[in-house]
Design a protein around this nucleic acid. Structure first.
Length: 646
RNA sequence: GCCAGAGUAGCUCAGGGGUAGAGCACUUCCUUGGUAAGGAAGGGGUCAGGGGUUCAAUUCCCCUCUCCGGCUCCA
């Protein structure tokens, strides 16, 4: 007998060699149908794998990530089996589960091209195979056995993977006619896969290396019930409706023109208004927090970037330098503002008493991004950073860092951005040549970031190898409507530029000292930040950000004069208001302006003229009754004040 | 940059080797209305651009540009 300990601490004895599935069945036959995989002594097991020793056991249902992971991983195998029967000779790369579903990288034989049109056919084959309810069988093999099997099969990608594995840990899984190198675990059988949708198809380099062959990656998702798939597809559709590219077009916020150039956003009046509202808001806040606003040119001498190290690092993958016709001087579009700010710092001598110096700029920068990488406003070639550089004494670094965390959290809170993650990016210890600066400085900077984040109780993930080339950083990331992760706010410690620009201050000992620099941005870039705001709000911006606060709708033409009178009062009170005096019915005008996400509609007719009022309709919230104009003006101002204070 | 798909009116899209279509938007007229679509008429297109095949190309083929989905990259 063996003793099994359940998550609630209870224990029970079972005969040796029992499987998790059998245990589940004994607890409750219904439960057995809902569990997909088990954690045994902290290791994930197939339900059908026998248990020989005393163990802790946790059974995973769909709500556990472990269960979905196994479900989708098994689905990847199912798809592979379908592909193998539809495309004889097809070779397989890797086929993992991902956050939502799974993919498999494949290499069809000869010149076969799999396109989107083929997906339903593959889907149907998968459904056919799933209905056979084939058992997943696990088999431990030696390295040689595995190698021989896939060599015989001609699967060179698999043999490459096997070569890198340690002998004694290799397992194969088979289901139906398909056998795969796989760590597992898997579902007991394919029958629980009831709903299948192959979502997209794309190219992917083998092992993520652009020098190697590009395989065909097929993405899909599966569920144990059709209803769950239907719900998932509805959520996907809704997300697409929030896509900032779509809403940006609908609401006329921004545009792109091939004549201007790809990845170069054109801000239309309404989008520019939102942008300006953000700039005004942040500028006021920064001044309160001891920042000085500066402004620098859009280009800089090539030697500036040679000094900063950017040229050496990124010169060849940047917009290339331009030359002056007579003198032959070389200038670059500025890819970042920091070198300029260093030179501003250097204009005057500094005493330890005046540090930290905080220089801020809404600086437009230009970066070459590969054409295939551009994406709406989130990935562009020209964007405006809400950039700032803090020059501080080493002893001030941690406090300063914490203050910036506070500032970022404050602004995220005001804008209701609750769904972000914080990531500490450190350098890759195995690739130190990718970075500039000494080991001592890197170690110190990394420690400072980790402890500052810790002292702020920030929940962070730590990723090695993601640091900037000049220093480690703390990034605030959010997801967009289609699940892509983007970096917004960032705080980066930098010991390197102060060296390169020979920055200094005079200490209390009357000696020359080197300041530490912090690069930081709250929004990251206005472009990316507004994209995220659009998707978070679905275009229903908070009142203070909305480009147009209200539209006056006369019930009929007879009341246009009154409407115009109100329009003037509101616009004189700095409440941007429009009038919809089209000869349309009231219902039509309300509908059109609701769809434009106008925060307030002011309906005026006979009653309003008589009482000198407006009838208020709040966006998405219907009729809110009547107010006098003065009441409405203070009502609006109060709402904006409320939005901007915590 | 790489792989795959797409580009038809301002927008969303249908169509298809032989006068170019719809809805919305726009213009004009009728309607003058009370909280999410009133009616009629009209204007609007080098079917992304360039080459080819053909008696004939918006449709088929090739190239370029742009966009969409990924990959790689991302100071």
């Amino acid at each position: 007998m063996i003793k099994i300990t359940f998550p609630d601490g209870t224990t029970k004895d079972y005969k040796k060699g029992i499987t998790s599935l059998e245990i589940a069945e004994q607890i409750n036959p219904g439960l057995a149908k809902e569990v997909y995989v088990a954690t045994v002594n902290g290791e994930i097991y197939d339900l059908s794998r026998p248990l020989y020793n005393d163990s802790t056991l946790k059974l995973h249902k769909w709500d556990d990530e472990e269960a979905r992971h196994a479900f989708w991983h098994s689905s990847a195998h199912l798809m592979a089996e379908a592909l193998e029967s539809l495309y004889p000779g097809i070779k397989f790369g890797i086929g993992p589960a991902i956050e939502n579903g799974f993919y498999y990288d494949v290499d069809p034989a000869d010149d076969t091209v799999i396109t989107e049109a083929d997906l339903p056919i593959i889907e149907n084959k998968m459904k056919e195979l799933a209905s056979l309810n084939q058992i997943f069988t696990r088999k431990e093999v030696t390295k040689k056995e595995a190698f021989d099997l896939f060599t015989k099969k001609g699967d060179e990608y698999k043999t490459e993977l096997i070569n890198e594995l340690e002998d004694g840990t290799i397992t194969l899984y088979s289901s139906g006619n398909f056998i795969d190198l796989c760590r597992g675990p898997h579902l007991p059988s394919t029958g629980s896969v009831k709903a299948i949708k192959l979502t997209s198809i794309a190219g992917a380099y083998w092992r993520g290396d652009e020098k190697r062959k590009m395989l065909t990656r097929i993405y899909g998702i599966t569920f144990p019930r059709q209803k769950m798939l239907d719900e998932y597809l509805v959520i996907l559709e809704e997300a697409k409706r929030r896509d900032h590219r779509k809403i940006g077009k609908e609401l006329e916020l921004f545009s792109f023109s091939p004549k201007v150039g790809m990845g170069l956003p054109l801000w239309l009046p309404k989008g520019a208004d939102i942008r300006q509202n953000l700039i005004d808001f942040l500028t006021r806040l920064l001044k309160k927090h001891g920042y000085k606003i500066v402004a620098t040119p859009h280009i800089g001498n090539v030697n500036l970037y040679k000094l900063s190290g950017h040229y050496e690092k990124y010169g060849s993958s940047s917009f290339q330098p331009m030359s002056t016709p007579q003198e032959g001087e070389q200038f670059m579009l500025k890819p970042m503002n920091c070198p300029h700010h260093c030179e501003i710092y250097n204009v005057t001598p500094h005493s330890y008493k005046e540090l930290p110096v905080r220089l801020a700029e809404f600086g437009t920068v230009y970066r070459y991004e590969q054409s295939g990488e551009l994406h709406g406003l989130t990935r562009v070639r020209s964007f405006t950073q809400d950039d700032a550089h803090h020059f501080c004494r080493p002893d001030q670094l941690r406090e300063e860092f914490k203050k910036i965390i506070d500032l970022i959290l404050y602004i995220f809170k005001i804008l209701n951005l609750n769904d972000f993650t914080a990531q500490i990016s450190l350098r890759d210890p195995d690739n130190k040549e990718k970075y500039i600066g000494t080991d001592e400085n890197w170690d110190k900077a990394e420690q400072d970031i980790i402890s500052a984040a810790g002292e702020k109780n920030l929940i962070t993930t730590v990723v090695r190898g993601e640091a900037a080339f000049y220093g480690p950083k703390l990034d605030f990331m959010v997801k967009d409507a289609i699940g892509r992760k983007w970096q917004l706010g960032t705080i980066q410690v930098d010991y390197n530029l102060p060296e390169r620009f020979d920055l200094s201050y005079t200490g209390s000992d009357n000696q020359r000292h080197r300041p530490v620099m912090i690069h930081r941005a709250v929004f990251g870039s206005l472009e990316r930040f507004i994209a995220v705001l659009i998707e978070n709000t679905a275009g229903k911006f908070p009142l203070w950000l909305a480009p147009e606060k209200a539209v006056i709708i006369p019930v009929s033409d007879k009341f246009n004069d009154y409407a115009l009178k109100i329009l003037q009062i509101l616009n004189n009170s700095d409440i941007c208001t429009l009038i919809d005096d089209r000869s349309e019915k009231l219902g039509k005008k309300i509908r059109d302006n609701e769809l434009k996400r106008i925060p307030y509609l002011l309906i005026v007719g006979e009653k309003e003229v008589e009482n000198n009022t407006v009838s208020i309709r709040k966006q998405g919230d219907g009729d809110k009754g009547n107010m006098t104009i003065d009441e409405f003006v203070s009502f609006i101002k109060e709402e904006i004040n409320k939005e901007l204070s915590l």
